[in-house]
C-alpha cells in the first residue's frame, strides 16, 4: 500500500472530527469518499494530503509517516484540489497552473523548458490550452476547477486528492469534470456528495459516518439500500438500469 492511514484521528476545537480511521488507498483507479455532511470526508482528505497534522495515529506514504517527510517532497507526491479555490490576486489561468511547479523548483531554481512543457501538457490534458492567457477572475466555475486540476497535474503527483470538486458546478459541468477525471487515468481520491456519481465513476468507495470509516469496497457491493438508510437516514432503492445500477431515493 503506497498511501494509507493507520488509526488516524483529528480533533478541532475540542471536537473529534476524524476518529481512528484506518484506510487502505488502492494502488490505482478512482477511490470515492462518501458520507453525510460533517462526516469527516474533507478532514480525512486533508490529513491524507498532509495539510493537517493528525492528533493520533498516522498517515503513511510508502510506509513512512507523513510527518517525517518534507513538505515539498509531499507536494511532489500528492496534489490536493479544494472545493472552491478563490483568490484576490490578479493571475492568469497559466499563472495558476505554473504554481504547481513550485515544489519542483525550490526557492531559487529557475523556470526550465521542462517546467514549461509540463505546464503546457497539463493545460492540454484538461482542455484549457486556449484559456491559458485568460484572467482567473473571468473563468467560469467549471473552468476554474479544470485549471486547479491542471495545477495539480503540474505537480506530477502519484495521487490526486479532490475535495468535492463538483460542488459548485451545474450538472453538465459536474459530468464533464468527472469524465475528465476518468480520462486522465491518474490515481484519484475524491470526496463526492452524489452517490450515483460515486456509483458510476469510482472503482472503489469508502463510506464515512460520524468521523469513522464504516465500509470500503466496490460501489455496487457497498452502496446498498441498507447502508444508505443507516448512514444517510433516507430510504433508497437500487435500480438495475441499462447504464448500470442507479440509486433512487424516496
Amino acid at each position: 500500500m503506497s498511501l494509507q492511514s493507520d488509526n488516524i484521528s483529528w480533533t478541532s476545537g475540542g471536537a473529534a472530527i476524524v476518529k481512528g480511521v484506518t484506510l487502505q488507498v488502492p494502488e490505482q483507479g478512482v477511490l470515492g469518499l462518501v458520507g453525510p455532511n460533517g462526516s469527516g470526508k474533507s478532514s480525512l482528505l486533508r490529513l491524507l494530503a498532509g495539510v493537517r497534522r493528525g492528533s493520533g495515529g498516522a498517515v503513511l506514504v510508502d510506509q513512512r509517516p507523513i510527518d517525517t517527510i518534507g513538505r515539498a517532497e509531499i507536494a511532489r507526491r500528492l496534489a490536493l484540489v479544494e472545493q472552491h479555490a478563490t483568490t484576490d490576486v490578479v493571475l492568469t489561468a497559466r499563472d495558476v497552473v505554473a504554481l504547481g511547479r513550485l515544489p519542483h523548483r525550490g526557492a531559487l531554481g529557475g523556470w526550465s523548458a521542462r517546467d514549461e512543457e509540463i505546464v503546457q501538457r497539463a493545460l492540454a490534458r484538461t482542455g484549457m490550452t486556449r484559456s491559458a492567457g485568460q484572467s482567473w477572475s473571468t473563468l467560469s466555475g467549471g473552468e476554474r476547477q479544470r485549471i486547479q486540476i491542471a495545477r495539480a497535474l503540474a505537480q506530477e503527483p502519484r495521487e490526486l486528492l479532490m475535495d468535492e470538486p463538483t460542488n459548485h458546478l451545474d450538472i453538465r459541468h459536474q459530468l464533464d469534470l468527472l469524465r475528465l477525471l476518468l480520462s486522465l487515468g491518474t490515481h484519484v481520491i475524491v470526496a463526492l456528495h452524489d452517490l450515483n456519481q460515486a456509483m458510476a465513476f469510482c472503482d472503489e468507495v469508502a463510506v464515512m459516518s460520524e468521523g469513522q470509516l464504516i465500509a470500503q469496497g466496490k460501489p455496487v457491493e457497498i452502496l446498498t439500500a441498507e447502508l444508505i438508510g443507516e448512514v444517510f437516514g433516507v430510504e433508497a432503492m437500487i435500480v438495475r438500469g441499462p447504464n448500470g445500477p442507479r440509486i433512487s431515493f424516496f
Partner: peptide, 15 residues
C-alpha cells in the same frame, strides 16, 4: 506566490 489561494493551498504546494 503559493499563498494566492490560501494557507491550505500553500501547504499542499509544499510550503
Amino acid at each position: 506566490d503559493a499563498f494566492a489561494f490560501g494557507e491550505d493551498a500553500a501547504a499542499s504546494l509544499g510550503v
